[in-house]
Nucleic acid binder design. Structure first.
Lengths: 338, 338
DNA sequence: CTGAAAGCGCTAACAT
DNA sequence: ATGTTAGCGCTTTCAG
C-alpha cells in the first residue's frame, strides 16, 4: 500500500501530456469535445502517473455530486434490497450513485440520516414511507431537490410518491378469507410504534374485520420490528395457547409467517388443515416453503425501477408536477391457505 | 418542495449572526473553540435561514470526506448485510459514513466500483474477498488509504485482512461427516467462475474428500451465483435422480440448503433419516427450519465490527502494520444431520 | 475566542 | 478543438 505519495492533480497530467488542465478535464468527460488523439494521450499520461480523478473538487465546482440519497428501514430485508436493486440498475446508466442509509425503523434515526445526507448535496432523495418527524419533513420540503416517498401512499406527500396502501393490501386478504367462510382470524405483527408500514397493515386488518362485523381483537404483538422468524414462531406459540380456535393468521411479513409455520410443524398443527397462515412481501421463502405461503406481492423491484425512471425524468426536466404512482400489490394464493 | 431558493452559504449565516464566516465554520464543529453563546446564536441564525452545511466544500478544503467505501457481492444477502451492520455501528460514533456498492459477484463490476469509489476520496476501503482483477488490485495498492479485504484469507493480501478460509471451514464439515461413518457425500454449489468464496468452499470439499480417499465427484452445479432457494431445490432434484445413494449433501449456503430440504419434503425423502443436509452461513432460517439445518457460522457481524475497529485504529495511527485477523467459523450441528 | 487571507482541485464561462 | 481566468464554499494557517 502506497501511503506516502503526494496527491496528483490534473495539472500534473496536463504537464506530462503537454496540454492545459482544462483539456485534461475535458478528456475525462466522455461527451466533451477533445480530439481522440489528445484524449488517448491524456488518459495514457494519467495512467502512467497513477492519477485518480478527484470527485470532491469536481462536485464543488460543478455543483453536482451524482449522488442519489436513499434511506431504507433495514439493510437486511430482501424486499428493500430488491427496491434498491431496481433503483440502482435504473440509475447506473446515468452514472448516478446511491448513497444508502438505514433507519432501523426509527424516525429519529431517519431524521439524523436525512440531515447527514442533505449536507452531501445529493441530486435527489428517496425515503421509505410517508411518515417522518416534523423536522425531517421540513428538511425534505426545503431541500430544493426531488423527494420521493416510497412503499406508502401518504395523505400529504412531500413531493413524489411511488407506493401502495399497506392497509388496503391487507384488507384484500381479509376479504378473501371471509369470502372463504372464515371468521376467527388473527394478526401477528410488531410493536406498532416503530414500523409504520407494519402498523398500517395491522390497522388495515382491524378495519377490514370490523367492516365485516367480525372480532378484530386477535392481535398478537411479536416484539420490536423488524419481526424475525423466531419472533413469528413465538407469537404463533402464544396464539395457539391463548386462542386455539383461531382459523387463520395473517402475519406482518413472510419471515414471521414462516416462523409461525415452523412452530405449527413442531407442534404437529396441520397447515392449512387446522389453521391457515399468510404473510406479506412475497419473499422467496413464501414460494418454496412446504406448504408454500399465501402472501402479498408489493413488487419491490418495480418500486425501485419506477423510482429510478422518475428521478431521471425529473432531472431531465421531463416531469415537473409531483408524481403519484400507485403500485397494485397482488394477492398470491398458495397452499398455506387451503 | 422548494426548488427555487438560492443556495445559502456560511457567509449568509455569518452576516445574520454578526460574526465572521470562520466563526460559523467553528460553530458547526462540535469540538472547536467558540463561546457557547456565540455558537447558539449562530446555530439559531442558521436554522432561521434554513442553512444546510455543504460537505462538498468542506471535503475539498479539508481533504477529508468521512466516507468509508465498502463493496459487497450482493445487497440481498443476510450475511453481508450483517457485516455491513457491524461495520456501520462501529463507524457511526466517529461520524464515518459508509459508501456501499455491490458487485453482483463479478470481478469486472468490482473493478468499476472501486474506481468510482476511489474518485470520491474515501478514508478507507473495505472489499469482500481476496481476489480481484489485476487493475483493481493495482488501484487498491496505490490508493494511499487503508485497504481491508474481508471474508477470506488471501495468500497475498493487499493490506489488512479480516476473514477466514472458506475451504478449511468446509473441510471441517466433511471431516465430521466422515467421522460419523458417511462416505457418499455430495456438494451443491454455483458456477465456480463467479463466486470465488463459493468456489473455495467447493475446492475445500473436494480436497477434504480426497484427503479421506473418498469419491469427490458428486458435484451438482446449481447455476450462476448467488444460488437461490429454488436453485437449491432444483439441484437436489437432480441429485436425487442421478445419485440416489448419496448419504449427505453440503450446500454452498443455507439458502440453497433450505431449498434442497424443501425438495426432499415435496418428494417424501426423510431428512435426516435417508439423507443429511448442511448449509453455510448460519442464516436465521437454518436455526428455525424443521428440521433445523446444520451449518457453519462465519460470524458475519463480527467481521464487520472488527473491520470498523481496525479502521478506527489505523486512522488514529494506532495500527501501522498490516493486520491479519483470522475469524474461526463454528460448525453448528443441528437436526438435519442426524 | 475570533478574524483575514489564501487556496483545496476542479470546471463554468468566455475566449481564440 | 483548446486555452485562460475566475471561483465553487468551505477550512487551513496565521494573527490578534
Amino acid at each position: 500500500m502506497n501511503t506516502s505519495r503526494k496527491t496528483l492533480t490534473m495539472a500534473d497530467v496536463a504537464r506530462r501530456a503537454g496540454v492545459s488542465p482544462m483539456t485534461v478535464s475535458r478528456a475525462f468527460k466522455t461527451d466533451s469535445s477533445v480530439s481522440e488523439a489528445t484524449r488517448q494521450a491524456i488518459l495514457k499520461a494519467a495512467d502512467d502517473l497513477g492519477y485518480v480523478f478527484d470527485s470532491t473538487a469536481s462536485n464543488l465546482r460543478s455543483q453536482r455530486t451524482d449522488f442519489i440519497a436513499v434511506t431504507i428501514p433495514s439493510i437486511n430485508n430482501a424486499n428493500f434490497a430488491d427496491t434498491v436493486r431496481g433503483l440502482s440498475e435504473g440509475l447506473k446508466p446515468r452514472g448516478l450513485q446511491i448513497l444508502l442509509g438505514y433507519t432501523d425503523y426509527d424516525m429519529a434515526e431517519e431524521e439524523r440520516l436525512i440531515e447527514q445526507f442533505l449536507r452531501r448535496r445529493p441530486e435527489a432523495i428517496v425515503v421509505t414511507g410517508g411518515r417522518h418527524t416534523p423536522r425531517a419533513r421540513r428538511m425534505l420540503e426545503n431541500a430544493g431537490i426531488p423527494v420521493i416517498e416510497t412503499w406508502d401512499l401518504p395523505d400529504k406527500p412531500i413531493g413524489h410518491v411511488i407506493g401502495f396502501s399497506n392497509a388496503q393490501a391487507v384488507r384484500g386478504m381479509v376479504d378473501h378469507f371471509v369470502a372463504k367462510g372464515l371468521t376467527r382470524i388473527a394478526f401477528i405483527g410488531g410493536d406498532t410504534t416503530r414500523d409504520t408500514r407494519g402498523a398500517d397493515r395491522r390497522n388495515g386488518f382491524v378495519a377490514a374485520m370490523q367492516a365485516h362485523g367480525l372480532d378484530a381483537s386477535r392481535l398478537i404483538a411479536a416484539g420490536v420490528p423488524p419481526i424475525s422468524m423466531r419472533e413469528g414462531a413465538e407469537a404463533m406459540a402464544r396464539l395457539l395457547e391463548t386462542l386455539p380456535d383461531t382459523e387463520a393468521v395473517i402475519c406482518v411479513s413472510d419471515l414471521s409467517a414462516f416462523g409461525a409455520l415452523t412452530e405449527c410443524q413442531r407442534r404437529g398443527v396441520d397447515v392449512p388443515g387446522r389453521l391457515w397462515i399468510a404473510g406479506f412481501g412475497d419473499y422467496e421463502i413464501a414460494e418454496i416453503s412446504v406448504p408454500a405461503l399465501t402472501t402479498i406481492n408489493p413488487f419491490p423491484r418495480d418500486i425501485g425501477a419506477r423510482t429510478a425512471a422518475l428521478i431521471l425524468d425529473v432531472l431531465d426536466g421531463k416531469q415537473d408536477a409531483a408524481a403519484k404512482i400507485a403500485i397494485s400489490p397482488e394477492l398470491m394464493l398458495r397452499q398455506s391457505t387451503g
